[in-house]
Nucleic acid binder design. Structure first.
Lengths: 260, 260
DNA sequence: TAGTGGTCTAGACCACGCT
DNA sequence: GCGTGGTCTAGACCACTAA
């Protein structure tokens, strides 16, 4: 990455800059390596820092870079493929999955969730059903890749005792849920930005781009649970389907060296 | 939306601004309505235009706003649910789907595609297989929501004549493809930014956020085709699963009035 | 041609991670 | 405390759309 000042083009500077950096990343940097700091880079390319940042932002969005305040900008490893249903025992709480339960409360369902549960919109308006709300975090390669809120109406798990200790509560809900036999799952994926709470658990700043996966679990003809999972969009590629053979984690880039 | 100057908080201004605007959008604006211009809004909230823009950018990312150069900023309708296989005859070219074919060439497969097709990485390095490359656009409600490049190796459609006119070529490829019986599909979804070419067809600026859906079609134990589809992330919610009953296009917001 | 959003600049200060 | 990325400002000019 030389002191290449940009030749005048009729293409936004930040766009051209992005291309140049992308190529430099492929050919001159190893995964995990730290780039020069933003002031340095901006000077080297002869642009304002804000312009340089616009290019870096996009590269981070595309999963090529990782930036951390107080630390620096590093070359990101290829996105990891995370398997989303129906395979790999994603039925919440199945043994061996990579979810870690971090809490559970019992509260009225938010309006949006009530609608997904197939409530009558009117009745949901004034009094949402009581739902067990389990918060979980999905770990992969020692990193938090997703947070999830799992909503289970009390009516879905009638076998539960009235009062539960915070320690056993989530486990009990998941256990009861696994007793039901799952008929099907509906899923939707959309782009969102991390709310403050999620951002913290994903070790990102609020507003970071995330992929929101909404799942409805159907058993015995009824929606028995709804999950809203928030995946880091920068580091994750969501994989669907039977085999999981697309889980190959390799990338285009020329050499795949490793930083010390 | 009053002349509410922001009270001093220890939260980024643009973040707070986003919250305020989001609420105003729910309560004081109808879908399709145009907002005051950026200079006006910035003045009204007592912030620099760049700061105001940071808030607007996020709201656009979340599908709440739509901005068009030379026109203005309007309140976006709720995201539309677009169905992604395996239902709804998504096997390319099936009758009645909303894809419009815009071109077709025969060329060596790019390295990334060759890998997805299950090629030997070494042989792919020096000589990619010849593939038919069909470019399609997915329309919904009269709007382009996705572009797709469908890669079909010549070996997958041996029945095809050597030379084809540009007009009949794509149709012929799709027809041959439909003769095979599809065994399964692998899919992956990740965040990307629109390349110049895609952006144009999606009526967005280059770099706009998109959801990239990569599909591998398997028939007779082999990968017979690979599709890379690029969906507008601002206007689309991708839906997966059996019923498509999550296709409800309604949103949280209080009233859902309609602009004139 | 007037008005919009998009790009760009050259500064300043802040919050955070390290050491 | 020092260096990093994150936020913010107050300008300027450009590219596009529509009247």
């Amino acid at each position: 990455m030389g002191t290449t000042h940009l030749e005048p083009v009729q293409e936004p500077k930040y766009w051209h800059l992005k291309t140049v950096l992308n190529e430099a990343l492929d050919s001159e940097f190893a995964v995990g390596e730290v780039l020069p700091n933003e002031r340095e880079l901006a000077a080297r390319f002869g642009v304002a820092r804000a312009t340089l940042r616009q290019a870096l932002e996009q590269l981070e969005l595309e999963g090529r870079l990782q930036r951390r305040r107080g630390v620096g900008t590093t070359v990101a490893p290829p996105r990891m493929g995370v398997s989303i249903g129906p395979a790999q025992g994603s039925w919440p709480g199945a043994a061996g999955d990579a979810w870690r339960t971090v809490g559970c409360v019992e509260a009225p369902a938010p309006a949006a969730v009530a609608r997904l549960l197939g409530e009558d919109p009117d009745s949901a308006a004034d009094a949402g059903t009581l739902v067990h709300t389990v918060r979980r975090v999905r770990m992969m390669h020692g990193q938090a890749v997703a947070t999830e809120l799992l909503y289970v109406p009390r009516t879905s798990v009638p076998g539960l005792p009235e009062t539960l200790s915070p320690a056993t509560h989530p486990r009990a809900v998941l256990r009861e849920l696994n007793r039901l036999d799952l008929e099907s799952e509906d899923r939707a994926v959309e782009l969102g930005s991390a709310r403050a709470e999620d951002a913290k658990q994903l070790e990102r700043l609020p507003g970071a781009p995330v992929l929101v996966v909404t799942t409805r679990y159907v058993a015995a003809g009824r929606v028995v649970a709804v999950a809203v999972a928030t995946y880091r969009a920068d580091t994750c590629r969501l994989t669907f389907g039977d085999t999981g053979s697309m889980e190959i984690t390799h990338h285009d880039g020329a050499e795949q060296r490793q930083a010390s």
